[in-house]
Computed example of a mutant assay.
Amino acid sequence: MILLTPEIRAQLGANDPEHGLEHVPVVKLFNPLGPGVWLATCLEPDGDTLWGIADLDMDCAEYGPFSLIELQQLDVGLGLGIERDILFETHTRLRAWLEVIDEVGGIRAAESVIARFEREG
């Protein structure tokens, strides 16, 4: 699977990593067979360094840089790799995501809380 389409790359590239927590996540990447979820808001000009939240299901989701190339090269088993959630949409800034993640324990748990918040306004 292509993790970043040209459109997604353009959206990520338009965001400044210095203000990454103020941006809305552009893309969600995930391990289809186990732990590992990433919400990316920015892409450095090098085309590899993404900025966002990494949640490896170890009770410490963090904001920072991670490598697109490394994610593309991961073999998670059964011949599968990291995938992009093609249905992911949010209007909530990354800073709020981090607050909810801290409360509920991870990106996957935070998704339902934030989806409900966005539906109800």
Rank of each mutant, 00 (worst) to 15 (best):
V76W: 03
E70D: 15
E111S: 07
L29W: 01
G81W: 00
R93T: 12
P35G: 15
L94S: 03
L12Q: 04
Q72K: 14
P32L: 04
R9Y: 04
I2C: 08
E111G: 06
K28F: 01
Q73I: 02
T92R: 05
P45I: 13
G105A: 06
E22F: 08
R84D: 07
H91K: 15
A61V: 03
E44P: 01
N15P: 03
Y63N: 03
V27Y: 06
L3C: 03
R116P: 00
L56Q: 11
G79D: 05
E111I: 10
G81T: 01
V26T: 08
L71Y: 01
I114T: 02
V76N: 01
P45L: 11
R116S: 12
I8F: 05
A115L: 12
P35N: 12
L87F: 13
P6Q: 07
G13Y: 07
P35A: 13
G64K: 06
V24T: 14
D75G: 06
A61D: 02
L74Y: 09
I53C: 08
K28G: 01
F88R: 05
F66S: 07
R116Y: 12
L56Y: 11
D46F: 08
I8A: 07
R9D: 04
D75N: 14
C60D: 15
P25M: 08
G79E: 06
H91N: 11
